[in-house]
Simulated scan of single mutants.
Amino acid sequence: MDKLTWYRVLAIAILLLLCTLPGVWAAPAPATTDYTTTYTITLQKDGSALWTVEYRTPLATDEDLDNFGNYSSDLDSVYLPQLEDLMQRSAAQAAVGTSRPMEADNFSGNAVVQTSPTGKFGVVTYSFSWTNFSVTDGGLTIGDAFAGGLYLDKDSTLIVRYPQGYTVASADPVPDQQSGDGLIWYGLRSFGSGEPQVVLAGPAFPVLPAGLVIIVVIIAAAGFMIYRKRRPDPGPGDVPEDPDDHASPLSEADRVSLEERIVQLLRANGGEQFQSEIVKVLGMPKSTVSSTLNDLHRRGLIQKIKKGRENLIRLVDGSG
C-alpha cells in the first residue's frame, strides 16, 4: 500500500479497533504499513471517557510530506465527519446493548508534522468524548460497551487510563504492561466479547469513630487559625503553586505526546479548562503538567488566566 492510499484510509482505520461493536460494519485490515496507532481511553469519575486516537508515520521523502499535507487539508471536511458518524452510531448501538444512555460528542482532529532526533513524522490525532462509557458503582467498570470484542492490528497499542486514587481490582485479559495510572495492551491481539473488561475500585476513605472525628476537626481548625495568623497576606498577583512532586524528566517524544494530549483535551472542552482538572484527567504529576503548560504558554499556544487561586488554561485560536 503506497503512502497516498494509506492517507485515504487513515480516517476509518479506527475500525480495526471498533469493527466488532454492535451495528458497525467490519472492515478488513489494510496491508502492512509503516505507521503506528495508539488508542487511549481516559476514564472519568462520572463514567464518561475521553478517547484519543493517534496515528504516526515517518515522512522520509518530499512525496510523503506532500501526501500528508493533502490529507491534512481534508481532515476537517472529510475524515473527521466520517469518524464522527461512525462513533455516534457505535455509541447509540452500545446504549441499546447496555440499557445505559450513551453519546459520543466533542469531536476534534489535528494533523501536525513533528521533527525529532529519529526523523520527521506525520502525526494525526482524533479525540472525542463518550458519555456513560463506564459503569459507576462505587468504582468504575468498563467492557460492556464492547459487545463484539475488539481487534488490535500489528504496531497498535491500546491504553486505558484511570483517575487518580482508583486502583485496579481486575483486568481481563491481563494487560501487557501496567503504569502508575494506566493499563496497556499491544497488538497483534483479538479481544473477546466484552473485553477488555476492567474493574476499578474507587478511593477508600477510612471510617473514623465520631469522637475521633470531633478531635481531628478541632485540631485541624486550631492549626489553621495559627497558620493564618503567621502567614502573610498574599499579594494581588499571588497564586500558590503546587509543591514539587519530584516527577521524572520526560523524553522528547513523551513531552510532545503530553503537549498533544493537553491541546486535544482543551479542544474537547470548548477550548478552556482549569489546570487542576487537566491534572486530574491526565493522571500525571502536577509538576510535569505545570512544566508542559509553561512551555505551551511561552510558545503562545495557550493563555493562563488567574481565576481566584486557580489557573484557567485557554487554547489560543488557531493553536493545535
Score class of each variant (00 low, 15 high):
T52S: 09
T40A: 13
T38S: 11
G69P: 09
Y39C: 02
S116I: 08
G97M: 13
T118Q: 11
G122Q: 13
T38R: 14
Y71I: 01
V24E: 00
Y39S: 06
V123Q: 09
T131F: 05
G119K: 09
Y79S: 05
D46E: 12
L50D: 05
E63S: 12
N106E: 03
F133H: 10
Y35W: 11
F68I: 12
P58C: 08
A29F: 08
L17A: 02
T118K: 14
C19W: 02
E103I: 06
P30C: 11
T32V: 15
A31Q: 12
V124Q: 10
F107S: 04
A26H: 05
Q88Y: 02
D105G: 08
Q93P: 00
A92L: 05
L83C: 02
N70H: 10
S129P: 02
F121W: 15
N110M: 13
G47F: 07
V78R: 12
W130F: 12
A94L: 05
A95N: 04
L43R: 06
A49N: 07
T42P: 00
G69S: 12
L50W: 07
Y71T: 01
S99Y: 04
T36S: 14
W25Y: 08
T42N: 05
Y79P: 00
T52M: 08
V113D: 04
P22W: 07
P30T: 13
V24F: 00
W25Q: 09
F133L: 15
V124H: 01
S48T: 05
D62T: 13
S48W: 03
V113Q: 09
A94I: 10
N106K: 05
E103T: 12
C19P: 01
L83K: 00
L80H: 03
T20F: 06
N70A: 08
A31C: 07
T118M: 05
V96T: 13
N70V: 08
K120Q: 14
W25E: 08
Q93E: 13
V24K: 00
T36E: 15
W51L: 13
S108P: 01
P81E: 04
D34W: 06
V123D: 06
T38Y: 02
V78F: 06
P28N: 05
S48A: 11
V123C: 06
N132T: 10
T98P: 03
Y79N: 00
D66K: 14
T40N: 12
D34G: 05
S99A: 13
S116P: 03
A49V: 13
S77G: 10
D85A: 14
A26F: 02
P58I: 10
E84C: 04
L50I: 10
E84R: 14
T57Q: 03
G69I: 08
R89H: 10
F68N: 10
N110I: 08
V53L: 11
T52V: 07
V113N: 07
S72K: 13
G69T: 12
R89M: 04
P28G: 07
T20I: 01
L86T: 01
T37I: 13
S99C: 07
T38I: 14
T115Q: 11
S127R: 07
